[in-house]
């Protein structure tokens, strides 16, 4: 330990061999009027006593959250105030001093440690390098295999599940109750969340069916002339930004709003994002109306739904189209 400068005697050190006499000024209490503090501390303890007892009574009687919390809170507050006041005003006010040596050790200490570590280490490993290598090899293999259960068992790997939904050619648009949607089910301006029949409530397949005009095909972009029969149009309900359900339909402006981060999609241009952070349009589901008046899917989505992921790329997605 390096030499510390001698202290000036004003601030006593408690750890010194000779004890600091109890009548030193630093052992005096901080209060100018101890009697007043004592009364206050006693009052706080009485308050906490009443609070804790009140909590017991409230709990016994099954009282409301308000009574339980107020009584317990007053109890803790009184107890805390009493202790803090006692410590602050009726206990040694200080100041005392504690010496502090610099953290860094001396060069000599460092060298001794290094010498011990290295010399004993050399004795341990000398001429047994093969053993050391084997030890490293076995440990390394253990390190690799303990990661296996994490990768193999925690969950399935993505495979192509991010590219496909449960929508197939001819899938009936089905409500959460399992009812097939017909062409007469929605008023103009109406909106309904639909699923493929084998994935009711599905987080990935969820689709928004909108009745945006009374009749005629809704053409959102070139190549989609037949996708919106009889004024109906359907988009994936999974936001392309962060995956929230795009839940709000504004009929006046014909826009869809995601309530999580306020991305706005324009229906008549194919749910193109017009505001907010969403980078891509909502995928559109091609619809047709069969002879019995049911609304059905022409085929699955032509691109992955929902937010982006590393391997999504910009390639065409025809090969993932549900057959």
């Amino acid at each position: 330990m390096p030499d510390l400068p001698p202290h000036n005697g004003q601030v006593p050190r408690l750890n010194d061999e000779g004890r600091v006499p109890l009548d030193a000024p630093q052992f005096q209490i901080a209060a100018h009027n101890p009697r007043r503090v004592e009364v206050a501390v006693a009052a706080f303890f009485l308050l906490s006593l009443a609070g804790f007892a009140g909590f017991g009574a409230a709990y016994w009687q099954g009282a409301s959250n308000l009574w339980l919390g107020m009584t317990l809170g007053v109890g803790f507050a009184g107890f805390g105030l009493a202790m803090a006041s006692w410590g602050k005003w009726l206990m040694p006010r200080g100041p005392f001093e504690e010496p502090r040596a610099p953290m860094a050790t001396t060069e000599a200490e460092k060298e001794l440690f290094i010498a011990d570590f290295a010399s004993r280490g050399k004795v341990a490993i000398a001429r047994r390098h093969a053993l050391a290598k084997l030890m490293g090899l076995a440990g390394g293999v253990l390190g690799v295999v303990v990661a296996f259960p994490l990768i193999r068992s925690l969950g399935p790997l993505p495979g192509n599940t991010q590219y496909r939904t449960k929508w197939r050619k001819g899938s009936f648009l089905t409500t959460i109750d399992g009812r097939r949607v017909t062409v007469n089910d929605l008023e103009v301006g109406g909106v309904l969340t639909v699923f493929p029949p084998d994935d009711l409530g599905g987080a990935i397949s969820q689709t928004l069916l909108l009745h945006v005009q009374a009749s005629g095909n809704v053409v959102t972009m070139q190549g989609r002339e037949t996708w919106g029969p009889n004024g109906y149009v359907a988009f994936s309900k999974v936001c392309t930004h962060a995956g929230c359900p795009v839940g709000l339909y504004e009929e006046l402006t014909q826009q869809l709003l995601c309530p999580c981060h306020q991305s706005l999609f324009d229906i008549y241009t194919g749910a193109m994002p017009v505001f907010g952070p969403a980078p891509r349009p909502l995928p559109q589901l091609a619809l047709y109306i069969d002879k019995s008046g049911h609304i059905r899917a022409q085929h699955g989505y032509t691109e992955p739904v929902g937010p982006g992921f590393w391997s999504r790329g910009a390639a065409p997605f025809a090969r993932y189209r549900g057959k």
Partner: peptide
Amino acid sequence: DNVVGTPLWPTFAMKTGG
């Protein structure tokens, strides 16, 4: 090279307990 204040026992213990 020093720390100046009040010791753990009893002053700080009582205050921090409170």
